[in-house]
Design a protein around this nucleic acid. Sequence first.
DNA 1: TTTTTTTTGCGATTTTTTTCACAAAAAATA
DNA 2: TATTTTTTGTGAAAAAAATCGCAAAAAAAA
Lengths: 210, 210
Amino acid sequence: MVANRNSIIRLSRYKNALNRLQSLGFVKVFSDNLADAVGCTASQVRKDFSLFGISGNKKGGYQIDNLLEKLQYILGKDKIQKVIIVGAGNIASALMKYKGFEKEGIRLTAAFDIDPSKFKKNNEIPILPLEELKTVVKENQIRIAIIAVPDVAAQQVADLLFEAGIKGILNFAPTRIKSPDDCVVNYVNLEHELENLIYFVNVLDKTKVK
Amino acid sequence: MVANRNSIIRLSRYKNALNRLQSLGFVKVFSDNLADAVGCTASQVRKDFSLFGISGNKKGGYQIDNLLEKLQYILGKDKIQKVIIVGAGNIASALMKYKGFEKEGIRLTAAFDIDPSKFKKNNEIPILPLEELKTVVKENQIRIAIIAVPDVAAQQVADLLFEAGIKGILNFAPTRIKSPDDCVVNYVNLEHELENLIYFVNVLDKTKVK
DNA sequence: TTTTTTTTGCGATTTTTTTCACAAAAAATA
DNA sequence: TATTTTTTGTGAAAAAAATCGCAAAAAAAA
């Protein structure tokens, strides 16, 4: 498949927009509606769809329910995706409190930590000792994990995760993780996001002066 | 400048790697060290630097202190960057508890909410009524804001921010924000990050079977 | 001193991504 | 029914980004 990170992120955005449109009672959309909704061009919407073999109707646009179904399938929403978190700090607790994942078919199954004072075996999303990670991952056939530990521990945790069978990691620690070829690591770094923003704000500021 | 989002994110990564190397006592680096550290190619590192007019020494690599200084300047780290948060929920509280921003020159100055039960005027990072936003932004000449409110409120909050003089927004709400030409909006959407990961894990899974 | 080795800097090339542009299909209108 | 309008789908073109390749500089070795 000719997919890259950005095109998949766009699919997620289309999906979100379609959900909103559907809940407003719309039944069909045109590529330019979606373009407006997600902030890209209509031809990019159509190109994305064409790349994934999604087609609509000439002059009739796209049937929202049909389109959603296909996007959801591509994005793995045909089954519930179980996810674990390693590191029961602030990020983990924000994620665990967030109620939006479940309705997108993403189930935070457990969190893990080394600090016994954090263990909460009876929580809805239990916080368990790191030693139990492997068992939980194997028993539940979990493939996706979130790393939210301090940077010095990140690679070590990642190795443990790969060993347990995890294939995809969303890494909040500000370190690059070395991973096996059959595994994916994506990064979230809010400092970098803010630095990025600051850079572009500065650039716009300077160009305006001209 | 020939900069795009990815190249600036790489600069942030180089900066992080350089800080680590420096704290380990290193004084110079070669492009391939940095490439290893951030996971790209050595020629990309050199190209990035050349695009920003950063030069090293043939056969001698780059002087870390000098390089850091230049990267920090480009990334706006010559002055403290004040940032506000709108929406005092889980994300905001995770961000406010995070101690890493300050040492990167990013100061969370205040958070704002509409819910009076959340106000904490005497916190280190105070949580204030939304009505005070404009004053705080103007008095402190703040240009950067984080939106962490429910999606339905995001555009309205953004408009308020633009009106107050905010030029850059990091938006955690799962909605596209329409913004004036001289403002930038970046997005953080963890559901989309996870969907992305799931997609690529599935793809790798399928290609392995072949 | 000369030769070899190493590493940068950057133009040229390749690859990737986006946009353009228009035929084809289908609906709407006349 | 014929014409006009609208919108898709997709090759072709353009733009953007990454990689290649190598001269030039500098250090190290001979």
